[in-house]
Simulated scan of single mutants.
Amino acid sequence: MNYTPNNPKPWLDCPPSGRLLRPQEVFERTGLGRSTVYAMIAEGDFPPFLKVSTRAAAMPEAWLECFVNDRAQAALASPAQ
C-alpha cells in the first residue's frame, strides 16, 4: 500500500482553530530545528506562521495537528524498511 496524499498541503483543509502556537512551541512539539522549519515553510512543505502583530507570529494548533497527522499517515502507509 503506497501513500499518496490527497493534498500536498493538508493544513489548507483545516480551519485555523485551537491555540495559537508561538514558533518556539512549534519547534519543541515537532522536534525540528528553527532553520529546518523555516526552510520547509519556504518550500511550501510546512504550515506557515501567521503575523498576529507587528512583532509576533503564531501558528494555529489545528494546522500543526493536520501536518503531523499527514506525516503519521505517510509513515504508516510506507513499506517497512
Rank of each mutant, 00 (worst) to 15 (best):
N2A: 14
Y3R: 07
T4E: 10
T4M: 10
N6D: 00
N7F: 02
N7V: 04
P8I: 02
P8M: 05
K9G: 00
P10Y: 11
W11R: 01
W11F: 00
L12R: 12
L12V: 12
L12W: 08
P15W: 08
P15R: 11
P15Y: 11
P15F: 07
P16R: 03
P16A: 09
G18F: 07
G18Y: 09
G18P: 03
L20M: 13
L20R: 09
L20Q: 03
L21H: 04
L21N: 03
L21M: 10
R22P: 05
R22W: 07
P23A: 08
P23V: 07
P23F: 07
E25N: 09
V26H: 05
V26M: 11
E28I: 14
R29N: 09
R29I: 10
T30H: 06
G31W: 07
G31S: 11
L32I: 06
L32G: 00
G33S: 14
G33Y: 13
R34S: 03
T36N: 08
Y38K: 12
A39F: 15
A39T: 15
A39I: 13
A39M: 15
A39G: 15
M40Q: 15
I41F: 08
I41V: 14
A42T: 05
A42W: 01
A42Q: 11
E43V: 15
G44N: 06
G44H: 07
G44V: 05
D45M: 11
F46L: 11
P48I: 03
P48F: 04
L50E: 15
K51Y: 03
V52G: 02
V52Y: 04
S53P: 09
S53C: 14
R55P: 02
A56V: 00
A56E: 04
A57P: 00
A57D: 00
A58Y: 08
P60V: 10
P60K: 06
E61W: 03
E61F: 05
E61D: 12
A62P: 05
A62K: 01
W63H: 08
E65V: 07
C66F: 03
C66K: 04
F67M: 08
F67T: 00
V68L: 14
V68F: 01
N69A: 15
D70N: 09
D70V: 01
D70S: 05
R71E: 14
A72L: 07
A72H: 03
Q73W: 10
A75P: 00
A75C: 06
L76Q: 12
A77Y: 08
S78K: 14
S78I: 13
P79F: 15
A80S: 10
A80Y: 07
